Amino acid sequence: MQAQRRAAVLGSPIAHSLSPVLHRAAYAALGLDSWSYDRFEVDEAGLPAFVTGLDATWAGLSLTMPLKRAIIPLLDEISDTAASVEAVNTVVLTDDGRRTGDNTDIPGLIAALRERGVEKVDSAAVLGAGATASSALAALARICAGPVTAYVRSAARAEEMRGWGERLGVDVRTADWADAHRAFAAPLVVSTTPAGATDALAAEVPDAPGTLFDVLYHPWPTPLAAAWSAHGGPVLGGLDLLVHQAVLQVELMTGVAEAPLAAMRDAGERALAAA
């Protein structure tokens, strides 16, 4: 009989999280009958007590907002990838009691693009300047040979994105959000904005655009993604990112060599269709 192993996603709010659907689908496909994966509503104030209370049955944690930075002081070490953006979305709890933090959003984004045949681009554009935008820049540092233009709403956000560019080794140029339609000339556009923020841009999509990666997944498609597809451009959505980063989390937490991508994606699609 296998020993019980636990994992969970923490955040606030957390009720919307698809992580339990994805991880449980992986456990079922892998025959990990003794593994469980839950969700817990935890804010920054409650995080230290939650982590301290974990016993030896716990294998790992997934972290969403607002905990990706708050978890760092509670860990024994973090990966270079996580350190590069000061954000941890994965904690692996080892048998000797150590807590190791990692970031699977960045390699997950790269893996999702690679799956669609996008491995290298000469330039790119990022819409928005929040936490997801910094992860996008870290991913683009590995696949973009030239400049990345970030379209933002304020001078403070522009300065922040240029700072991330210097830190990550990316040639970041900034432009005003009023000119965001100009982003569509880039071979790769990554939209990191909240729901509704890019709806007005849908009418500006050109014929035969490059690739769009819109990190939203519900409701889907966004007006921008729908318009992009209608004009013949390849589109990736938030579910692509969510599944690929979860695949890496399952591998880190369970030690399996290859998590079941297809089963996890299918479970995610069915859950969204039922929402």
Rank of each mutant, 00 (worst) to 15 (best):
A136G: 08
V172S: 02
G163R: 11
V126R: 06
G163S: 12
E166R: 15
S123Y: 01
A139D: 14
V152I: 13
A155I: 11
T132L: 13
E160C: 06
A133Y: 10
K120P: 01
V148F: 06
T149G: 03
A141C: 03
L127I: 06
D122F: 01
A136T: 05
E159K: 12
L140W: 05
T132E: 05
A133L: 10
K120H: 11
V172D: 00
T132C: 14
E166H: 12
C144W: 11
G128R: 13
A155Q: 13
S154Y: 09
A131K: 10
S134P: 06
A155D: 14
P147S: 15
V170E: 00
G165D: 03
R116S: 07
I143T: 15
G146A: 04
A131W: 06
R116P: 01
A139R: 08
P147V: 00
L140S: 07
L137W: 05
R142M: 12
A141Q: 06
G165H: 05
R162K: 14
L168F: 06
G165V: 14
A136P: 05
A136K: 02
V170K: 00
A125C: 08
D171T: 12
T132M: 15
S134L: 03
S135N: 13
V172C: 02
V121W: 01
A138M: 02
A158Y: 03
D171I: 05
W164Q: 12
R153T: 09
G117I: 07
A124I: 15
A133S: 15
G146T: 12
A150I: 15
R167C: 12
V121E: 04
A136Y: 02
A156N: 02
L127A: 03
V126Q: 06
D122P: 01
A138H: 04
I143Q: 02
L137P: 12
S154P: 04
A133W: 08
G146R: 09
R142H: 12
G117H: 02
Y151C: 11
G130H: 01
A129S: 15
A138F: 07
A125N: 02
A155M: 06
A124K: 07
G117D: 05
G117C: 05
G130W: 00
V172Y: 00
V172G: 02
A133R: 04
R116F: 09
I143G: 02
E159T: 14
T132K: 10
A124R: 05
R142S: 14
I143A: 02
G146N: 08
A136N: 04
A139K: 08
A125R: 01
T132I: 09
E159N: 13
A125H: 00
L137M: 12
V121T: 14
L140M: 09
E166C: 11
L140T: 03
R162M: 14
T149R: 05
S154E: 08
S134Q: 13
S135R: 15
A129L: 09
S135W: 03
L137Y: 08
L168N: 04
